[in-house]
Design a protein around this nucleic acid. Structure first.
Lengths: 90, 90
DNA sequence: TATATATTTAGATAATTATCTAAATACCTA
DNA sequence: TAGGTATTTAGATAATTATCTAAATATATA
């Protein structure tokens, strides 16, 4: 889960996740939302993919990115641990 | 919340949070759990404090650190957003 | 007040990460 | 198959971050 935390630490990558929550997008469409070159976006997408926060599928000339919620669930579980109080003496 | 995400991206800092979940600890006690100098731990504690993930209180010669769960709640809310499906057409 | 302990601050260095340009790969279509 | 579009890979550089040593600050106590 370390990769997920690192992937989430960058604002651009969190913005990508927000975009993908609305709809699946190609790499180029994602890049269109940023003032950043396509190789830079490609790098961020790669980190998100390694962290299993997004999935990609090749469709012809395009690569379509989409959210992968399974790791989100793991991370929420990690956080919930801090919000549940330990019962004393148990 | 950007600072919280950045603070959480480091494994040592997440380990500190886990230690503090069990009990409040002084800076020195926290440092005792790591193979790292005290100034390095102090730096990590500072980032956690800036992110409002921990609080500190001076008690005599010691400084006691404790968890601050309010920002955890914000971050969980952020994650939950990705796990709730949008209803189509609404 | 002098000394010891706990912690932080300052400043330097090393490691990691983000970003760019240029080139490579893959697919589509005329 | 030649040319165009979409995307990634490679390699360089700049920015950020982690870590260290040495020094400073604050408190306790003999």
């Amino acid at each position: 889960m370390n990769e997920a935390f690192k992937a989430l630490s960058d604002p651009s990558r969190r913005k990508i996740l927000h975009l993908l929550k609305k709809e699946d997008l190609t790499a180029g469409e994602i890049a269109g939302h940023f003032n950043m070159t396509k190789p830079s976006i490609s790098h961020h997408l790669n980190l998100l993919r390694q962290a299993n926060l997004v999935e990609s599928e090749k469709k012809g000339q395009h690569i379509i990115y989409s959210l992968n919620t399974s790791v989100f669930e793991d991370v929420v579980t990690w956080f919930m641990d801090f919000l549940t109080k330990d019962e004393e003496g148990k």
